[in-house]
Design a protein around this nucleic acid. Structure first.
Lengths: 375, 375
DNA sequence: CAAGCTAACATGTACGTACAACTTCAAAAT
DNA sequence: ATTTTGAAGTTGTACGTACATGTTAGCTTG
C-alpha cells in the first residue's frame, strides 16, 4: 500500500474529519446515516462503520443506537494533543511549595497541559511508589522535588527507567548527586551567605544558625553561613550551629534556642533561621526567655513567606521568587519535551536577596558586659 | 441484551483477559492466531477480530501483521485500571486549600488513582477553560471548589456535560445552587454562629463582623453571626457588618476596621473575622490604632490555620478538619465512581468548633463610658 | 390536547467470502 | 556454510447478508 492509495476506511475517515474541521458539521450536529455515507463514499456499510468506529474511539464522534452519529463537542476530544505532566512533591501543603506549584500550573494550563500532582511525605519508599504509578500513566514529563535530598537516592532505578522511556524530567530545589537532569532552584548557599553577611554588617559577632540538614537546601544555606563568617573573619562557636531534621523539627530547634538564650554570657546577638516557619517558632523561644526581637536579639528568616508579615515584628527574610521558580521549571520541561532545550548547562538558579523589615537591627552594646573581641 | 447473554465479542474479550490476568500468557507472549481463537470460541473470525481490536485499543494487546497478536507489557498498558481524578480549585496556594488537597491526594494515592490539579484564580472564565480541558482528558471523576460561589453559575453547561458524560463530580466548601451533586463542607453558618456566640457569652455586646461575601462560605458565616445576635437578643449596628470581595480584600477590610476602631464611641468590643488571614491583617489595624488584642478588643478568626499561632497573640479561631475534608471528599467520589455511594443525602458536613487561645477575653467595663443597654 | 401504539428508520452484532500485505521458515541455489 | 527464493501462515481491508436493539415520528384513541 503506497502513499497514493490509502485504505478506503482511512479515506472515509478523512472525508468526515474534513467536514468537522470546515465546520460543515458542528458539535452535536448529526452526520449522514451509515447508509447515506456508504452511498456517498461508494464503499460498503462495514467500511463506513470502521471509519466511524475509529473517530468514535478518538472522541471526535459519538453514536446513539437507533438515532444516529453525531459530532462530539470539543470537550469530548481525547488527550492526544494535551500532554500530561507530573509534579512530584514532598509535601503538598508545605508552606512554600503551593506557590511553586501555582507558578508551574499557570504555565502548564496556558500551554494546554494537564498536571498530575502527587506527594511523597518526604519518604523514599513513597517516592518510589509515586514514580512507578506516574510512569504507568500517560506521562510526558515530570517535575520532581527530591525527597530527603541530602540522604542519597535508593530509587535510582526509577529515574533510569524515566530516561529509558525517554520521559524528560527535571528537579527543583536540589538534584540527586548522581543524576544529570536539569535543576531549577534558589542559590541556597548565597542565601545563607547573605543572611549572615547582613547581620555581620550590622555589627553582630555572635550569630547562631539553625539549619535543616537532611535536605541539601539546608546544607547549602549552612555552607553560605559559614563562608560569610570566614570572609568577614568572624569567629563561630560550634554550639551556635544547630542541625535538625524532618523528624525532630518540632522540638529540637526550640529547645536548643531556649538553652542558648537563657545563658547571658553565651547568648547569640542574632539568629539565622533556616526558614520563616522556624523563625516564627524561635520568636516564641525569644519571648519565652523574656527577650525581644530585635532589641535583644536580631533574627532573619528565609523564604519571605506570608509568615514573615503575620508576626508582630515583621521578619527580615531572604527572598526568592517562588511562583516564578515554578513557572521556569514548567517552561524548561516543555522545552525539553519539544527538544528545544539546550543540552548542556540547563540549570536555572535564582539569586536571592534580603527583604529588610523589623527583626534585625545594628548590634549595640547597650550596657551589656560584652566586648567585641573580633575585627 | 440482558445481563446473561453478553455479545459474543465481549465474551471472547473476557476469555482473553482472563488468560492475561491468570498469567497463562505473559507480556510479549503470542496469543493463539485469529483462526485458532475462532475455533476455540466457536465464533467467526470477524467476531474474534472485534474483541482483539478492543483489547488493542485498550493497550492490553498489540498486533503485528503477518506475525501474530501479543500481550502488551505492563508499562504499555493504558490507564484503564488507574482512574484519573481531577481536582479543580480556586487558588492552589490559598493558605487552606493545600491541606484539603493533601488529604484528598493521600486517599487517591492509596486507591491507586492519579490526581490532576488545576486552578481557576477565582475567575469564572478560567473555570470554564479548566472544565473543558479536564473533560478532554481521561477523567473519571472530579472534585470541584466552586468559583465565586455566591455569584451564580454561567458554566452550567459544562457541569451538565459532566453529567451527560457520566463523570461523577462533587463540590467542596459550597455547591452551586442549581446543581444537585454532593457537597463536602464545613457548616459555615454554625461556624459564624459559634464565633459570635463565644463573644456574646464573654459579655461582648458590640461585635463587628467582617465577611467575604462573593463566596457562599462568607455569606453563610455572616448568616450564623446574625443568628447568634438574634438568639441572644444582642443588637447589631449595620456599620459593624463589613462585606468585602476577592478584588478588594487587600484594602477594604483594613480601612473599615481602622475607621471603626478610631472612634471611641463607636468602637466594637470584639471582632469576628472571616478567616485567620483577615485576622492577621486586622491585628495590624488594631495595633495601628494603638489598641491591644484582647485587652481593648477581642478577636476571633476562622480556620485555625498555622497563621493562628504565628502571631504574637495566639488567635482564638473556629476550627475544622481541613485534611479530613479532603479525604472524605476523595472517598465519597470513589464511592460514586464505583456506584456504591447512596443516591440521596450524600452531603458530608463537618461541624466546626472553637479553639480558645489568647485573642478573646471577657468584656470588662475598664473605666469606659459604655453601658450595657441590651439583655 | 395528551397519551399510547406502531411502523419506519438507524445503529449494533454476527456470520461469511475474498483478496492484500506482511512475516516466517524451509528448501534450493551459490 | 551462507544467501536467496517461494510457500505457508497470519494479520489487514473490503464487501455482502441477516437479524437484534433502540429511537423517532406519525397516527389513533380517549
Amino acid at each position: 500500500m503506497n502513499e497514493k492509495t490509502k485504505p478506503k476506511h482511512e479515506q472515509v475517515k478523512e472525508m468526515i474529519l474534513s467536514w468537522i474541521e470546515s465546520e460543515r458539521y458542528k458539535p452535536n450536529d448529526q452526520l449522514p446515516t451509515e447508509h447515506e455515507l456508504s452511498e456517498l463514499s461508494g464503499t460498503s456499510r462495514q467500511t463506513v462503520r470502521q471509519a466511524l468506529g475509529t473517530l468514535v474511539q478518538e472522541g471526535r464522534l459519538y453514536r446513539k443506537q437507533g438515532s444516529g452519529t453525531y459530532v462530539a463537542a470539543l470537550s469530548e476530544r481525547r488527550t492526544a494533543d494535551m500532554p500530561t505532566i507530573g509534579v512530584l512533591t514532598t509535601y503538598i501543603s508545605d508552606y512554600i511549595f503551593p506557590q511553586i506549584v501555582r507558578g508551574a500550573e499557570s504555565v502548564l494550563r496556558e500551554q494546554g497541559c494537564l498536571m498530575l500532582l502527587s506527594s511523597t511525605d518526604n519518604d523514599k519508599a513513597k517516592e518510589r511508589d509515586n514514580l512507578l504509578m506516574l510512569q504507568a500513566g500517560p506521562l510526558q514529563g515530570l517535575i520532581i522535588e527530591p525527597t530527603k535530598s541530602a540522604q542519597g537516592n535508593p530509587n535510582l532505578d526509577c529515574y533510569l527507567a524515566l530516561e529509558y522511556m525517554k520521559i524528560p524530567y527535571l528537579m527543583i530545589n536540589e538534584r540527586y548527586a548522581e543524576l544529570d537532569c536539569p535543576c531549577v532552584k534558589v542559590d541556597d548557599e548565597l542565601g545563607g551567605y547573605l543572611a549572615a553577611k547582613h547581620l555581620i554588617e550590622l555589627g553582630h559577632f555572635r550569630i547562631a544558625g539553625f539549619f535543616k540538614t537532611d535536605d541539601l537546601q539546608g546544607t547549602q544555606r549552612l555552607k553560605g553561613f559559614l563562608r560569610a563568617h570566614r570572609e568577614f573573619g568572624v569567629q563561630l562557636r560550634p554550639e551556635h550551629v544547630v542541625h535538625y531534621a524532618t523528624e525532630n523539627k518540632e522540638t529540637r530547634p526550640f529547645e536548643l534556642a531556649l538553652t542558648m538564650l537563657e545563658k547571658p554570657e553565651e547568648r547569640p546577638t542574632a539568629i539565622v533561621c533556616y526558614n520563616d516557619e522556624l523563625a516564627v517558632r524561635l520568636l516564641e523561644a525569644v519571648r519565652r526567655t523574656e527577650l525581644r526581637v530585635p532589641e535583644d536579639v536580631s533574627m532573619i528568616g528565609f523564604d519571605d513567606s506570608f509568615l514573615a508579615t503575620a508576626t508582630e515584628v515583621k521578619l527580615t527574610s531572604v527572598s526568592h521568587p517562588k511562583a516564578e521558580l515554578g513557572m521556569k521549571a514548567a517552561e524548561l520541561l516543555i522545552a525539553m519535551m519539544e527538544g528545544s532545550a539546550p543540552s548542556r548547562n540547563r540549570d536555572i538558579i535564582f539569586a536571592p536577596d534580603i527583604v529588610l523589615r523589623d527583626s534585625t537591627k545594628p548590634y549595640e552594646k547597650n550596657g551589656d558586659k560584652f566586648v567585641r573581641t573580633n575585627v
